[in-house]
Amino acid sequence: MGTEIARRLETDPEIDYLAGLDERPPRARLERMDFIEADIRNPVIAKLIPQAEVDTIVHNKIIRRPGPGMSGRSAHDINVIGSLQLLAACEKAETLRSIVVRGSAGVYGSEPSAPQFFTEEMARRYPLRTRFQRDVAEIENYFDTFSRRHPQVVCTMLRYQPSIGPALNSQITRLLSQPIVPTYLGFDPRLQFVHELDAVDALVAAIKNPVRGPVNVAAPGTIGLTKLVRMAGKPTLPLLPGLFGPVTDSTQRLGIESLSADFRRLLRFGRGIDITRLVEEVGYMPRFTTVQAVEDYVRTQRGRRLVPVFREAVAS
């Protein structure tokens, strides 16, 4: 997604200078961007970033789920230590006016007794239950403290719901591309996503119009897990809550994705967030509703879906 954001920013005439920092080069060729190859955990970025003399920093290095070959430990390191190093660098950048962080709505958790739509002030109302949730809460804390110490810098913390889209490889798209989708027996949570295009555009909107504090980012509306899986045309494997963890973990060896603790809770209790602040203060209205985002994703998926074929035949 980093490359996608950079590509969008490159085409913007209002931006005079653009630099990107990562430990591996971007996937596509970028014309205008200066690429700095560095690890965000390395203190050397405290020298590199102030040299660039930028007015805005976009922090897009929060790992939602450790990829293959990455331990939970190193994901935690990148998330927390990386954010600290970045802030240390920001301390020295005198030209800095705003920081935009692509955070996560995972900070709210998934709670059966929570309001159906979290607003920005409802974080930390429930215990932080998973490692990722604690990481995000910690990161938010650092940026909050930083913005209080440096009132001239506007810190925007974007809380993203999971993204979905044809070009995306995320936990939810990987779950839906499996031959069979594990679910919690007797639960059909309300889920909310953001379309991959809206995810990028909301970030760009926040860069142009940074507002102080947390902002929820999601598509309007929600979708039940059952409806989602049926739209994707996949069979489900309902599992008792006690068996869900062991079963999904053991299928990992068969090459089927195991699910993060965070994501498991999401599949059981769901989560909705309120996007009034995004629409009214940042001024960005997502183009896709949650159901439309799912439709757009499903349309591009291969494979024959039995039920619609059967239906057409009945109707004819």
Binding site: Q116, L228, V229, G233, V307, P308, F310, R311, V314
Partner: peptide, 24 residues
């Protein structure tokens, strides 16, 4: 029977409406 079957198939294909609260 065909109508009932069609309604059932529609639901099985995920073709039903839930509002943002999950009301169906």
């Amino acid at each position: 029977l065909r109508d009932a079957l069609d309604r059932l198939l529609k639901r099985l294909a995920g073709d039903y409406v839930e509002d943002e609260w999950g009301f169906d």
